[in-house]
Write a protein that binds this DNA or RNA. Sequence first.
RNA 1: GCGCGAGUAGCUCAGCUGGAUAGAGCGUCGGCCUCCGGAGCCGAAGGUCGUGGGUUCGAAUCCCGCCUCGCGCACCA
Length: 565
Amino acid sequence: MTPDELLRAELTRAALAIGAPDSVAPALERPRDPAHGDWASNVALTLAKPLGKKPREIAELLVAKLDLAAAGVSATEIAGPGFINFRLGAGAHARGLADILTLGSAYGRTTAGQGAPVNVEFVSANPTGPLHVGHGRQAALGDAISALLEGAGYAVTREFYYNDAGVQIENLAKSLWVRVAQRGGVAVAIPEGGYNGEYIKEIAERFVAEHGMPDAATLAAGAASIVAQERPVDAALFDAMRRFAVAALRAEQDLDLKAFGVKFDVYYLESSLYTDGRVEETVGMLQRGGHTFELDDALWLRTTDFGDDKDRVMRKRDGTYTYFVPDVAYHVTKWQRGFRRAINVQGADHHGTTARVRAGLQALEIGVPVGYPDYVLHQMVTVMRGGEEVKISKRAGSYVTVRDLIDEVGRDAVRYFFLMRKGDSQLVFDVDLARSQSEENPVYYIQMAHARLSGIFRVGEIDPATVTADGVAWDALSEEAERELVKSLLDYPRLVAGAAESLEPHRVAAWLLETSRQVHLWYHKHHVLGEPEHILRARLALAKAARQTLANGLLLLGISAPERM
RNA sequence: GCGCGAGUAGCUCAGCUGGAUAGAGCGUCGGCCUCCGGAGCCGAAGGUCGUGGGUUCGAAUCCCGCCUCGCGCACCA
């Protein structure tokens, strides 16, 4: 039992003894102000109504009933409207460090998820261009959420879904055709809806290098078709270009993700939903279920029956399906693959799709719960460079890529910057600031704390493996800075559990920064090496525990924990 | 117009799911290097938590109205 669990149990016992309802569940929290003790409880305030007494009076009754020694409490005080503040004995907290030393990299991990499979889908960028900053935020968020869930005992599958057919890919192929034609001397411009980025020119160059330059007449005829909003006449050549462009951009994105240190377990292709018949099957099921209707030569789904604000077209007048049909079919596969929990990390610009995907799944009546899947939506990222906002437009080809950011400020800093804020907040990524700040960057501050702690062992020529909790005089950790640091370290499991439950990695980022502050403060004020034996041993144990916990937190965010900088 | 999100220090943002005197980084001002790394530490100034009501012992946090900003509202994806 940890000190707070012990205290909570004792508090519950005392509350029942003075006549509290059986449902009483005393809450313990860390007072904002350390002067208010190590733990505080508002239980007397919540009991005021059921017991019909004044909060302070109840607090006094409770304290009288408490077995302080059993709870490891050295002092109590009743404060304010009726808070009970508890101060733990000097060693009571520090003894908790033994857990950290024993558990090591497992400290903060739990088995709460009991190995249940969870699917986390993120990035899911279509192969029509390099990954941009928005994808970067999503990659950092999705990967950290996955790590948090793994740490909470879930079996996580990181999944990337992409559209490799459809209109956008058609436009991509047309754009490539135009660039190849331009190289072949045909005067033609990128069509409406096409992609203007420089990278298409590079792909055109490579296409010609590998496949040879197609003859001018074919290119010119195809270009004319494209201008006329048709597919080029030479379907075989066009398909070759489409496949080439998709493969080239997928390869580029993989390099981006590799540079960012993100790995996916599954890449799911939209086209496979058509080839294996799942799209047709889904449509059939919806029709049989009676939730569809025909109007204006199109097939509609009555999504308004399931909470959407308007009905949606499934099959267009031209006979093709809207994107949302394969999207529903795709989520059916998640359910069928055994994921009772699925989390989609997406930009807030996709939030319009959440209601209709959920509605589609409900209309199938296959037992999918109402709120399936979960969505974690992050707000937009705006990029500032040279004091001006960089307008992000794939078609215009002007935007900042993930690779640009990593090259400029480093992977660790990019990850931290994307994770230090709650996804609900819009994010201004000032590239110049991120670069110029690099020496006083929060991520370096945190890594420095880890490096300094490592330095103690390096300089002292002490193998950290030899530092254990055995026989450590915990009372020796009596300095204020030590007590505060210990408290932060012991809060870590609770913090991580909360972050995992709420799918909010930024809580870990904030904890790392605050704890690093305490490490620097402690390091600056108190020496380890050269102190008397009992102090040396206690402080080495603290240094090792702090270093371990910082490393565990950094790992969750995908940030390295360097031994030296 | 409707939906989602945001509005907290000069700037960028936290605020542990309702607690005590609202915090951090950057920026500004002022201090600290015989010391395990100064890539650090200490201090100061800086707030009507957008706004008006409500709920209760207690509200930045929950509910309602209003204002401002972002995103979305296709037989595009």
